[in-house]
């Protein structure tokens, strides 16, 4: 039995869901879905200076994030894994446990990468619902979805993405990036990169953060805020007293790659990249990550065949 929704009914379904949830439609947004679970800035604790009491803001409202594509769904599954290890991240799960994730995918799906429900395109006018969790099941209403035994299903092949193919061999990527420490490409990138951090902000998997206190203007309370940080920014590894463990852009850029392709492989068995292309689209210096990786991997292969 399949649940099929007409394309034109999707927006009405979303309107209906608004009765029970705060609905966030992320189609066309520059920042990825991580922003709703790991916000750019959030208060983690609030200290009242008068009562000397410490409180932790509670998050109560259920919400639904709609419109994630395949890469973003996969990223959310990975981010869940990251936020569970080595300890459960309280503030992430506080929001994540109150949320539903709905994918909208215009290509035929081989393996459902994550989320609660995925709407998969089956004809030019129709999507079928792939229900992945009980929470997801509860929002599939007869009013919007037709039950069909054997709906007609057209094949919409995923466009060929060489970058994505490269990610399949994450072991090779890990070896290549580790090997590349003294590669000339890092000098080039050290010159080219502005160290602005945009690539990490738009990345659906980058999750570095810093913790900073903020005092209200009336001086009545202090908030401990957790906010996005970026390992490419100059102060990322600088300690009080002034010593900076990653002084140059080159060092910081390599460290970023090392995290995504080497450390992530050692920790999780895969690269922390889903080939979504946001870093490439948004880099003001025009750095194309996929091409950087390709150059490193090609040279590594040459190096291997030369031994």
């Amino acid at each position: 039995m399949e649940f099929v929704i007409e394309k034109k009914k999707i927006d009405k379904w979303l309107d209906d869901l608004k009765k029970d949830f705060k609905v966030i439609d992320i189609r066309g947004k520059a920042l990825p879905a991580k922003q709703y679970f790991l916000p750019p800035k959030q208060k983690t604790f609030v200290f009242n200076k008068k009562t000397k009491k410490l409180s932790c803001p509670e998050y109560k409202k259920e919400f639904l994030v709609f419109g994630l594509g395949l890469a973003d769904l996969e990223a959310m599954t990975q981010l869940d894994e990251i936020m569970e290890k080595p300890y459960s991240d309280f503030f992430y799960w506080q929001k994540r446990n109150k949320s539903l994730i709905i994918g909208l995918v215009d290509e035929s799906i081989e393996v459902a990468p994550g989320g609660d429900v995925i709407l998969e395109k089956i004809t030019d006018q129709q999507y079928r619902a792939l229900i992945l969790t009980d929470k997801g099941k509860a929002i599939i209403k007869d009013e919007f979805f037709d039950k069909k035994d054997k709906p007609s299903i057209k094949n919409y092949p995923q466009p060929d993405n060489p970058f994505k193919r490269m990610l399949l061999d994450s072991e090779l990527l890990a070896e290549a990036v580790k090997w590349s420490l003294n590669h000339k490409i890092w000098d080039k990138l050290g010159e080219q990169c502005l160290g602005c951090g945009i690539c990490t902000y738009v990345c659906p998997l980058c999750h570095c953060f810093s913790i900073e206190d903020q005092v209200s203007l009336d001086n009545k309370e202090c908030s401990r805020c957790r906010q996005w940080d970026a390992c490419t920014l100059p102060e990322f590894s600088k300690v009080a007293g002034g010593h900076n463990f990653h002084k140059t852009i080159k060092q910081r850029y390599y460290n970023w790659f090392y995290h995504k392709f080497v450390r992530a492989y050692h920790e999780y068995g895969k690269s922390q990249c889903v080939a979504c292309g946001r870093c490439r689209e948004n880099c003001p210096a025009g750095i194309k990550i996929s091409e950087v990786l390709k150059e490193i991997v090609d040279d590594y292969k040459k190096h291997l065949s030369a031994i």
Binding site: M83, P86, Y87, D89, H207, C208, F209, S210, I211, D229, C231, F236, S237, K238, V239, F245, N255, H259, R263
Partner: peptide, 14 residues
């Protein structure tokens, strides 16, 4: 090293 979380999440001390 610089540390923010102390529990292996924030990535500063790596």
């Amino acid at each position: 090293r610089k540390m923010q979380c102390g529990i292996g999440k924030c990535q500063h001390c790596v």
